[in-house]
């Protein structure tokens, strides 16, 4: 697969373990030239890392990646057509400082909201596609994220399209209170209808996928894939440590752990995702007399 440099024009945000919802813990160093790999400690040039799909060339560690980089990586050429690009959240329950947080999130991510949705082709096969945005409040699910995802599944159902979705999320967006919780039910409803009409849904769980997103559309796919090393769980590790009053085993809640426990179908490294997805879509073409009709 060819990767062009200009796919990764956007400076990647580095590495820092991002804890929950606090924006302050993530440093914003756009011009950083070098990054140290948290797994093998190798010093990598940011440019080289971006050219390598933000995977450490030395050890295969998967660095975090923004939504448009992901879409660029798996879709064909300029086939991506965005939907509902302009939808923006407002402060529905009057939560203190939420407007300011939204403003910062837009600035930091360059996106209007925490998910990018649209249609595209992958290896020539058309699909509806969503990619959550880690640099927008850690892909937390508020009403707009829920609405965009529900609309995408409804559009895909109306057009008999498969859905491919990349998840990354700290969970429900608490600044929208109960309305963010309702998005779990809303997206699940749309996923269910899309599936009942015989359409394929493939989820790719990336680091981290937690909370309300795990407990809704991330775990509802027909095929659930995960990136190597991705943290995937309902409760966050810190909450569990507090509950259990013990240290967690090293690979606990990692993609490999979920594979072992039977909750993901396969771990697919980033470099192989496009080919893997194309093959999967090709085996689920509707009306070709082979797959589902």
């Amino acid at each position: 697969m060819m990767l062009t440099k200009n796919l990764f024009k956007k400076p990647g945000n580095p590495l820092e373990w991002y804890d929950g919802h606090n924006k302050n813990s993530m440093p914003d160093i756009p011009d950083q030239m070098c990054i140290s790999c948290p797994q093998c400690k190798a010093i990598l040039l940011t440019g080289d890392l971006n050219e390598n799909a933000r995977v450490c060339p030395k050890c295969g560690y998967h660095f975090r990646m923004n939504a448009r980089q992901r879409i660029g990586l798996v879709t064909d050429g300029d086939s991506f057509r965005e939907r509902d690009a302009k939808m923006r959240s407002s402060n529905l329950i009057g939560f203190p400082n939420y407007e300011k947080k939204l403003w910062h999130a837009r600035l930091e991510s360059g996106e209007n909201e925490g998910v990018v949705c649209g249609t595209a082709s992958i290896g020539g096969f058309p699909c509806a596609l969503f990619a959550m945005e880690p640099y927008f409040m850690m892909g937390s699910m508020g009403t707009v994220v829920g609405e965009k995802i529900a609309r995408l599944f409804e559009y895909a159902a109306a057009n008999s399209l498969p859905v491919v979705g990349f998840t990354v999320s700290g969970g429900a967006r608490m600044q929208e209170g109960i309305l963010s919780l309702m998005q779990m039910a809303k997206t699940s409803a749309a996923v269910k209808r899309h599936g009942e009409a015989g359409n394929l849904y493939v989820a790719v769980l990336t680091d981290p996928t937690t909370g309300g997103v795990t407990a809704s559309f991330a775990m509802e796919a027909d095929v659930i894939l995960a990136e190597p090393g991705a943290l995937i769980g309902f409760a966050g590790p810190r909450v569990i440590e507090q509950t259990m009053r013990q240290k967690l085993p090293p690979n606990f809640q990692r993609a490999e752990f979920l594979l072992e426990k039977g909750f993901v179908d396969e771990i697919v490294p980033r470099r192989g995702q496009k080919e893997y997805l194309a093959n999967l879509l090709s085996m689920h073409q509707r009306g070709n007399g082979h797959g589902s009709v």
Binding site: S188, A215, F234, F263
Partner: peptide
């Protein structure tokens, strides 16, 4: 809330809740 512990996570707390959401909806 749902239990936040190792036993719940390794048996798929997120998946169990997600399945109830889709199935109850229908």
């Amino acid at each position: 809330g749902a239990f936040c512990g190792i036993s719940a996570e390794e048996r798929g707390e997120g998946q169990a809740i997600a399945e109830n959401l889709t199935e109850m909806m229908a």
